Amino acid sequence: MNQKLSNFVLYLMSVSAGLVVANLYYNQPLLGEIAKDFGVTESAVSHVALTTQLGYAFGLLFVVPLGDMVSNKKILQYDFLLMIISLVAAAMSNSLLLLITSSFFIGFTSAIPQLFVPMAAQLSDKEGQGRAIGIVMSGLLIGILGSRVISGLVGDQFGWRVMYYAAAFVMLALYVLLKLKLPKIHPSYDGGYGALMKSLWTYFKSEPVVRLAALRGALAFGGLSAFWTTLVFLMEDSFGYGSGVTGAFGLLGIVGALAAVLVGKMNNKISSYKIILYGSLLLILSWAIFLVSSNSILGLVLGVILVDLGIQALHITNQNIIFSNNPEARNRVNTIYMVGFFIGGAVGTTFGAIAWEQFKWMGVSVLGIFFSVALLGIHLMFNVKGKRSK
């Protein structure tokens, strides 16, 4: 029988989710330094961020569904080994190609925080599910945002390679702690891996709520990824700041991430339709502020706070919806949702880099507005389904 979820284990999963997912984002404030080190263009070095996100999407697709079939402890054992090797390989890279390849595997192995979110939902009672998801997600969001602060400072002081060595050491220590303290989950699925993967398509076809959540998540995260990929270039061009100041913007997002627990609790009191509506409007407002803030630090600060609030409201609500509707396959529906989410991120990174090269910050901001307006339009178009998705 599975253990009940204690506060210690819940917060351990939250901290672990943040530390692991941080591996995906250490590179973003460092892209300028990496480009100079290898003598490549801003567009070329953006492939480091792109392949990391693509690797994460592949990890979500091929690793996370195993949470419904294989013990979580066994998954962690092999995943952390490959993760640590990949981080060390990135630190030792002597070419952009090797760094890009290592980055793919860093992304691939850093998908495991998405095992913690369904686990928190599984071990919680129905009334506490939103709170548990919110707490784990707050750790994950703080990891995403805080990673940029840390890597920016480390990059300024010690160079970009030191950040990857440090991350490898942190992952080794974290694995030891998880091995000792994380409860062992015994999955209920008794089929083979092939059948498990085929069932992803079955859930995708038969669950319109899951498809809609994945599309909403992809559009929201696409805009956010475009922002973070190009912010370092804006800071250098318009203000003359380096990776340290760019990474410090993550501190602003942490304020919003701390509200994740509140958003989780709100899911028990306010309809999911309304939360997603308000979140979409926040995203549009934030991008409108970015559009007129290419020379305003204050505008960028306000925009970062609002965009992170909008993202977390959408993300936590999306996951609460799909977990409640599919309790027997939480890892698989989470896989479908998160693959869509990070494919959106990869698209946002790609088009964000193109928009920057062609039209600078105005192009990036218009791209973000397009993603956000499309999200709102889709939500309103599926208005009836949205109201029933709670």
Rank of each mutant, 00 (worst) to 15 (best):
G344L: 07
A49G: 04
G348T: 10
I135D: 05
S71Y: 11
W361Y: 01
M69Q: 10
K269T: 14
L140Q: 04
D37E: 15
G352T: 06
N2H: 11
Y273P: 00
V232Q: 09
A214K: 11
Y193A: 11
S206M: 12
S86L: 15
F62L: 01
Q3K: 14
M362Y: 05
M92Y: 04
K360R: 06
K385C: 03
A214T: 09
P29K: 03
G368P: 08
V261I: 12
L282C: 08
L283A: 05
F104C: 04
Y193F: 14
V40R: 04
S296R: 04
L123G: 10
S272G: 15
V88W: 10
S389N: 10
A121M: 06
Q319T: 12
A168C: 15
F290W: 09
F169L: 15
L215K: 01
K387H: 08
V347L: 13
K73E: 11
G368S: 08
G253K: 03
Y11W: 15
I135L: 15
I84W: 07
S93M: 13
Y189D: 06
S147A: 11
K360H: 10
E33G: 06
I106N: 10
R131K: 14
V210D: 03
F204N: 07
V88M: 15
L300N: 15
V15W: 00
F239D: 09
G39I: 04
K274N: 09
Q53K: 06
V70D: 05
K198Q: 13
Q114Y: 12
V149H: 00
N331H: 14
L54H: 02
A260E: 01
Y56T: 00
N383I: 13
F108W: 05
L99F: 06
L145S: 05
N267V: 05
S294G: 13
A220W: 09
L277T: 11
L251V: 11
Y26E: 07
A220Q: 12
A22R: 03
V20H: 00
Y273I: 03
L380I: 04
W228M: 08
L140K: 10
G191H: 13
R161F: 10
L367G: 01
V64C: 06
W201T: 12
L19Y: 00
F233V: 09
G242P: 13
V21P: 14
